[in-house]
Every structure is written in structure tokens, then in C-alpha cells.
């Protein structure tokens, strides 16, 4: 997705290109040689696409449609058990949710959490990518190995490990902190104060996401023409200026992409909190995803849960549209 673009500098000659779409604007200037090189192929493409499309319709669209329907009903446990058709309530679920102060508190918290995580992830990733360029081969190999290992960790495993690291009684974090003179963290509970608890959650999230950002940005940085940078240095530009005027413009599309993706992922953080709080999340730790789950499975109002989920989807839709436009601009979707 991002990477073929990365590796497609104008210098590459633009040899392999996508066929021109019959609709929509042609790909931007990157060079679309060979007009009409795409084949219509008669029925073949439709036959090829059909199985995949049917599968996606069954597993994505039908549930989505059901979600939509349920959010206009009052679907409760009783209906799940008996199979009775629930009552239609119109927009009641949505008005209930939107007039609930707790919802707005959760929504605000979700946004703040997302912003903090995205900033740390993207900022940290960029920093790591920049220093990776300049470190010696051995160190870079070590860093790459560490990044890839962290990247590969399943979320369930990463969460278990961080739970153990911050365990109040025998977690190494408390043990090490207590070694500092005058500090006693024995028995300190990281989930007592909500902000500390979220700090631990953010640590898992960022730790798991930084490798992707760092590695992708590092790949992008290798695309920066060396000559340009050298020329800028010769012209007497400082490191910061070179970055701003030479390096950043080149990596900007990738930077925007990883930021957008991080926004979407961090908005949807669910499993890390769910597992950290032992599958039973208290209201102080609710983000939109958790809130929706709790409404559906703890309060047994599936309709309220789906209403919150739909509101989340709508909030994210803005980001998704932005993401799509970015891709189209660069000619990935034509």
C-alpha cells in the first residue's frame, strides 16, 4: 500500500503502471505511459472478482447492515434468547447516547488518548528513523531486530507482558523505581490513578506501533536524494533547515499516511485495555470501543452498543475520507 509508492520515484522511469481506469481522473503526472494498456477482458475480471466480493459482502456488509438495523431497535438479551423481533425505536438510541454526559466524557477521553498516542508514536518513530540513518551498521542491525520483534508481538502477548512489568507487587518497574534513593514504589498500583493506568496502556500501544512507523519512515528517508542534502549542506544550511526544506518534503506523503493510519488505530484501541483490566473494564477506563462493548454485553442493551459503534464509525469516516483522498492524490486509487 504505502510502499510501492515509496519505491516509485520519478527516476524509476515509471515503467510498471496500473491500467487506466475507465472512470475517474487519470493518475497524476508520475508518468502513465502506454495508453490503453489495460485490458477489458470481457467477463473474466468479473468472474475473478466474484468469489472475493461475495465473501466480503457476506462477512462485512451483512453484519454492517444488521448493525444499522439493530441501532434503530431496542434489542436486548430477551430477543437474543427468544428470537422475538425487537421494537423499533427510531433515533431513540442515538438521542439517548448523545445526551448522556458519560458518552461525551468517554468521547473526549478517546480523542485525547488518541492524540497522545499518535504524537508519541509518530514523533518517536520519526526520531528513531532519523537516528537509524546515522548510526553504525551493528547498532542499526540491533535496533532493526528489536523493532521487528516488538512489531511481531501478538497484542495478547504484549499486553500480558506489560501487565507483568507493571504488576503492583512483583513488577520489575516498581522494583527498579524503588531502587532509586528516596522512592518507594513497592505495591504501587499503576491502575489506581486513571492517568497512570492510561500511561501504561499508552505504553503498550506505542511500543507496539512505533516499529511500523520507524521502519516505514526509515524506508522513506532512504528515498531522499543524497545530492540534494549535500548541496543544501554546501549552501550552508543547518541540519534543521535541511530537514525542513529538503528531507521532510520528500517523506511527507509517507508521513501523512502513517499519521492517518495511527489516528485510525489509536482511535480503535480496545484489546489492550480490555485485557489489562481483566476483561472487566471500569467506567474510568472506558474508551469508545470499550464503552460500546460494555453497553452491549454488560448492560445487555445491544442496540445502545451498536449505536455507539456506529457513531464511532461516523467519527472515523472523516479520517477515512481524508486517507482515501491522500491515496488518490498520489494515484494509488485511480
Amino acid at each position: 500500500m504505502s510502499v510501492p509508492t515509496l519505491d516509485r520515484p520519478p527516476a524509476a522511469g515509471g515503467e510498471p503502471q496500473e491500467p487506466d481506469g475507465p472512470d475517474g481522473p487519470a493518475a497524476p503526472a508520475a508518468g502513465t505511459p502506454g495508453q490503453g494498456r489495460g485490458h477489458r477482458g470481457g467477463m473474466l475480471p468479473y468472474l475473478l472478482v466474484l468469489p472475493g466480493l461475495l465473501a466480503i459482502a457476506a462477512v462485512y456488509f451483512y453484519p454492517l447492515y444488521r448493525t444499522l438495523v439493530m441501532s434503530f431497535q431496542d434489542y436486548r438479551r430477551r430477543h437474543l434468547w427468544t428470537g422475538d423481533t425487537p421494537d423499533w425505536v427510531g433515533f431513540e438510541q442515538f438521542t439517548n447516547v448523545l445526551t448522556d454526559a458519560h458518552f461525551w466524557a468517554v468521547a473526549t477521553r478517546t480523542v485525547v488518548f488518541m492524540v497522545v498516542c499518535v504524537t508519541l508514536t509518530v514523533g518517536g518513530g520519526l526520531l528513531i528513523a532519523l537516528i537509524m540513518q546515522r548510526m553504525s551498521l551493528v547498532v542499526r542491525l540491533m535496533v532493526t531486530a528489536a523493532l521487528v520483534t516488538a512489531w511481531a508481538m501478538p497484542i495478547v502477548v504484549a499486553t500480558s507482558v506489560f501487565r507483568w512489568l507493571t504488576d503492583s507487587e512483583y513488577g520489575i518497574v516498581n522494583i527498579l523505581l524503588s531502587k532509586l534513593p528516596g522512592v518507594d514504589f513497592r505495591g504501587h498500583n499503576w491502575f489506581m490513578e486513571t492517568w497512570q493506568g492510561f500511561a501504561v496502556v499508552a505504553a503498550v500501544v506505542v511500543w507496539g506501533a512505533v516499529p511500523f512507523v520507524a521502519v516505514t519512515l526509515y524506508a522513506a528517508l532512504t528515498q531522499v536524494p543524497k545530492e540534494l542534502e549535500e548541496a543544501a549542506h554546501l549552501d550552508g544550511a543547518g541540519g534543521r533547515q535541511v530537514f525542513r526544506h529538503v528531507v521532510f518534503p520528500v517523506i511527507k506523503p509517507v508521513f501523512v499516511l502513517v499519521t492517518t493510519l495511527s489516528v485510525i488505530w489509536d482511535f480503535n484501541v480496545f484489546l489492550q485495555i480490555f485485557l489489562m483490566r481483566g476483561n472487566n473494564v471500569e467506567p474510568q477506563y472506558e474508551l469508545l470501543g470499550i464503552y460500546s462493548y460494555n453497553l452491549a454485553f454488560q448492560s445487555q442493551s445491544f442496540s445502545q452498543g451498536t449505536a455507539v459503534a456506529l457513531i464511532t464509525v461516523l467519527l472515523l469516516a472523516g479520517v477515512a475520507v481524508y486517507y482515501l483522498r491522500q491515496m488518490m492524490k498520489r494515484g494509488e486509487v485511480e
Binding site: 472487566n280 471500569e282 454488560q298
Partner: peptide
């Protein structure tokens, strides 16, 4: 059982502890 399922009492105790 809904009161239990939603952890009303444990959450209250945590609040007081906090």
C-alpha cells in the same frame, strides 16, 4: 445480576479508594 455484571459495587469501592 445487572448490578453485578456492571460492577457497580466494586467500582464504588475503587472510587472511595481513589
Amino acid at each position: 445480576s445487572a448490578v453485578e455484571q456492571q460492577s457497580v459495587l466494586p467500582n464504588m469501592l475503587l472510587e472511595v479508594l481513589r
